[in-house]
Amino acid sequence: MSETQNKRRWWVLFAPLVVFAGLVVFLLKGLGSDPTRLESVLIDQPVPKFEAVDLFNTDKVYSEEVLKQGPLLMNVWATWCPTCRAEHEFLNQLSAQGIPIVGLNYKDDSRAKAIDWLNTLGDPYTVNLYDPEGNVAFEFGVYGAPETYFIDANGTIRYRHVGDVNERNWNNKLQQIYQQLQQEAAQ
């Protein structure tokens, strides 16, 4: 048997193993990722246009301009959302540290319930947007609550966090993102 033929035989023998190893890596990666987490398509896009009234005073109307005074966070919440309750105390802490958070009350059961929630649990929000029909949230591609958007000083959406904000993920990742936006604004 010739040398080249021999080489080819080895190749044929090991090709399935190589393919198998590739598949293992690919599938293991899929196993570790959470299929309920979606990338936002609005990353690096300016905040979408919208109009929303104030949660406490429905005569007061806000536009997307309210999100262009960043860097800031926009937190999507509702009283029907248990995870929002879980993160609320931590949002209070962030607010106490001076981090501006705009609240978007998303399709809540009633305005009274939402106001009651803020009065009893504390209000970490600099502005409270009221979105009973979910129209504002639709513009942001919100698909659940809570979601937290990181918006830079130019009003560009830079990051979306799905799920609760807590001490662990804030320290591990989110704080860094926020500080990055602050540094950019300072330059």
Partner: peptide, 8 residues
């Protein structure tokens, strides 16, 4: 829809 929720 795709502009808001992606190709997903």
């Amino acid at each position: 829809m795709v502009a808001r929720y992606g190709n997903f």
